[in-house]
Design a protein around this nucleic acid. Structure first.
Lengths: 233, 233
DNA sequence: CACCCCTTTTGATCTCGATCAATGGTTTCG
DNA sequence: CGAAACCATTGATCGAGATCAAAAGGGGTG
């Protein structure tokens, strides 16, 4: 009988530093000599890079349950992990310590390894999205992902707080903020999403949203069944 | 005293199936129930996905020394690993077996884990390339990478066999094959690269090539020092 | 050698999204 | 409260690269 994933990672807790984050707070990405492992507990986080003058780029989104190891982030200028949600919680520990713990606990090692493989697959999927889809399809893909990850099912549809600004969305999808604004307006006009308050959106039908994006099937497969937390509440 | 990476992976050899590949030969990506780990020994390989009608896309390039685990590839339609070089060699083993071996050999586990993290970082870097660079810059980035990976230093510069066709390059860089052809012609005209036979190119100055690409520093850092093999010859 | 198939090259035109610009809304903070 | 930032929206214009089309290699095979 295998222990549940929640239980597996709970064992790391005594070795970690708990970090409560506020929106836009940054987490350090340490140098190779002292690699870091972050375990996302609550909230959405962004991996961001700057790559000339004042242009930024959001390489990936992190959700509760994700693990991120600093050597999985390329050594670009100005890379950082930043909180996108109002309140978040992350656990931090040194990779060298995690490695040691893995040796005594294969289940733990395998769980973290699987989470890191998920990250890799998501990055590859994101490549597909920005390389092969139109602007409208990209935004539909992102909305689907976020609705599945942070949304709550209600009678009116899936309600979720959008953790990304227009600029963030643009930086993640290789679009322009102006273009994103236009696309989102169009999605509202078409009834795909509706506004339900400050930064809060409703998606009446996830199927209708998925219909706008050619690879929605894959997105749903990867984000509907992922582990959502690393520690039981 | 740590064993060398080559020695570490050599221990896997008795548990693997050796595969000799010819150009365009495909490797199976098994379902989740029987996940596969491939160890690239010789040659360049492509991870390819098809995502509508007859459009393909090359998600990543694999070089000798790389490890690839099938769950790190997203469940898109028509994903496959294909040989890009004339002659290649890969070792295959079931992930469940690899997991078991990791438990008895932490160095092995750490080495594979590090290689997988490299893959992740490279995917993130590739996101940056296709999301933020112009067509010319993307091709310069790819040429730099391949020259560093498969090239040989000669008095005339770095000589390398280009494992990718124009179409492959286009599918990897989110460009059009026509556009790639134009860009490569321009690079030839500018003396950045020269033709030295069938599919063979010479890069006189890697510095000149790097100058064309804003993130060449990062590319060089990631591809110059990577392990090149998993087994001593 | 001639034929076929596939890749590459090059030209002409078109389009999606970037860029520039102006306006209004919202949060923050003295 | 009012000023300063920041964010979102919308219009007008522009351009990098896609698309379409046609020609030119370049090998393999009979």
């Amino acid at each position: 009988m295998k222990p549940s994933p929640e239980f597996v990672l709970q064992q790391l807790e005594p070795h970690t530093v708990r970090i409560s984050t506020r929106k836009r707070q940054k987490l350090a990405i340490s140098a190779e000599s002292d690699e870091t492992l972050y375990l996302i507990q609550t909230g959405v986080f962004l991996v961001r890079a700057a790559w000339r003058d004042d242009r930024h780029q959001i390489l990936s989104l992190l959700y509760p349950g994700d693990c991120i190891r600093s050597s999985a982030i390329p050594p670009l200028d100005g890379t950082e992990i930043a909180a996108a949600s109002e309140n978040g919680e992350v656990w931090r520990l040194r990779w060298s310590i995690a490695r040691g713990l893995f040796e005594g606990d294969p289940d733990l090692a395998h769980h973290v390894s699987d989470r890191l493989a998920d990250q890799t697959a998501r990055l590859a999927l994101h490549n597909t999205i920005i390389a092969g889809l139109t602007g409208d399809e990209r935004v539909a893909a992102l909305m689907t992902e976020i609705a599945l990850r942070v949304g709550k099912q209600t009678p009116a549809g899936i309600v979720f707080d959008m953790p990304l600004s227009r600029t963030d969305i643009a930086e993640h999808l290789a679009l322009n903020a102006d273009t994103v604004s236009r696309i989102v307006s169009r999605m509202r006009a078409n009834g795909l999403i509706a506004v339900a308050g400050r930064n809060r959106l409703v998606c009446r039908s996830i199927e209708a949203l998925a219909y706008e994006c050619p690879i929605a099937t894959t997105i749903r497969r990867m984000h509907e069944t992922a582990p959502r937390r690393t520690l039981v509440a």
